[in-house]
Design a protein around this nucleic acid. Structure first.
Lengths: 243, 243
DNA sequence: CCTTAAACCATGTAAATACATAATTAACCT
DNA sequence: AGGTTAATTATGTATTTACATGGTTTAAGG
């Protein structure tokens, strides 16, 4: 674990401090509501200004990972909002846990120009082609989900990879890219003609639609994933606890 | 609307600025991704330092109400309704934060026999009546969610309570019952005739359906909640981190 | 011995300043 | 006209400085 801050790095100091703090609070020593060193001391130790350190702490406070108390100190929050971390993101593993064997109905990999929103999430130009993966998956009886994934060019995918392997395992082993954070948006949609065809339902039928924004170790965008789930066959579960 | 900042007020300047901005972006003029005045100008106009102003803007950026772009400016995010772990559980508070005034279109409280699944969750007999609350809520323009709540008899509700108050606040203050854990199941459904009528959509249109199992301090079931959200107007967001 | 006041500690608030960097626009040169 | 370069604009990063304020601990006083 990196305990110091590199002033020569192009990564902003407050980002480095933030990452450092995230690592720090994972340490068992800090788990049970323990106090952090005070800001003035810690800033001196890290050789950054108190303002910069506060900038980093602020983010974690906002995420409710840290709790500040005036005149007392900053402590590590005990219970975090767990969203039943999906084991972790892997579809096939999740299905396996439910006793469903995943069948791949279609798999298609291509190089395409990203649309506006994808390019914006990846922070790249719409003129630069990226790898797109489409997958139709389901149980042994019938397909019930259609996935579209876009991958950031930084990863360096060729499009020739073995996408039959569990995706995140492959990305980790072959490209040292680890999914670290996922932001998801879940909504209900009417199936358009294309999706309806894939999922073998009627156009206009409801589908559960999930956008997933996946970030790597450095909080950099790595995957943009769209999932269209046949309505009856999928339930998304979330568990959250008061903090 | 207050447009100025009171330097003599005991309320911190950055809090005042934050509130002012929240009001400001509600203004129709700012609705469609419009740019805010630049930080240096705005700070001068409000007679506060840029640092303080940035502190205020930061909060709204964290909440994704504003989007900053270096060298370009700060624009208002096209606010769609999302639920960032629901703040915590309260619908009206979450809407308030988004600048949407919640309107209650219908409110109906009754004593009913629980169905099988409800009785099973509460671990009570189907012969024992419980309090059921139905609510149709939405923005000032139109309803977009229909809630049904069942409450565990242990709480001791009479059905005469003031359900116009924030629910969890009322339960905490009047009955010392605190929501502590929530398990949610989200799926997509076709609106049946009843729901379609309430939400003013066509039968068969997709709705986002959420079941919520709420537990109290002692992890005992306290509320069973069903929510039917009009499809276009609701996005459920989840953020999860690898552990 | 208990209450109250003072001292202390750590975070909270606020400003002024300086320079870096990304996005846009304008000017410039082929 | 088209592409490259430079200037402009507005946010991003970082430091130093100063004082306020809410808790905690200690010390004083009845």
């Amino acid at each position: 674990m990196k305990l110091a801050i590199d002033h020569k790095s192009p990564i902003p100091l407050h980002i480095q401090a933030e990452q450092l703090l995230r690592e720090l609070i994972k340490d068992p020593v800090y788990q049970a509501g323990k106090l952090l060193p005070n800001e003035v001391e810690l800033a001196k130790k890290l050789a950054i200004s108190r303002t910069t350190l506060r900038q980093a702490i602020n983010k974690l406070v906002y995420e409710e990972l840290l709790i500040r108390k005036k005149g007392f100190g900053t402590k590590v929050a005990n219970s975090r909002i767990s969203s039943k971390s999906m084991n972790w993101l892997s579809f096939s593993q999740e299905m396996k846990a439910r006793g469903i064997t995943v069948k791949n109905y279609e798999l298609h990999v291509s190089w395409v120009f990203p649309d506006e929103s994808t390019a914006s999430f990846f922070d790249i130009s719409t003129e630069k082609k990226i790898v797109k993966m489409e997958r139709l998956r389901g149980s042994s009886d019938n397909p019930f989900v259609y996935f579209i994934s876009y991958f950031h060019p930084r990863i360096g995918l060729t499009g020739e990879e073995d996408f039959k392997r569990p995706l995140y395992e492959m990305l980790e082993e072959e490209y040292s890219t680890i999914a670290n954070l996922s932001k998801e948006e879940i909504s209900a949609l009417e199936a358009n003609k294309f999706i309806a065809g894939k999922l073998e339902i009627e156009t206009g039928s409801p589908v559960l639609f999930r956008k997933r924004f996946v970030y790597d170790q450095g909080e950099r965008p790595m995957e943009y994933n769209l999932g269209y789930y046949k309505a009856e066959s999928f339930v998304y579960t979330v568990e959250s606890r008061r903090t």
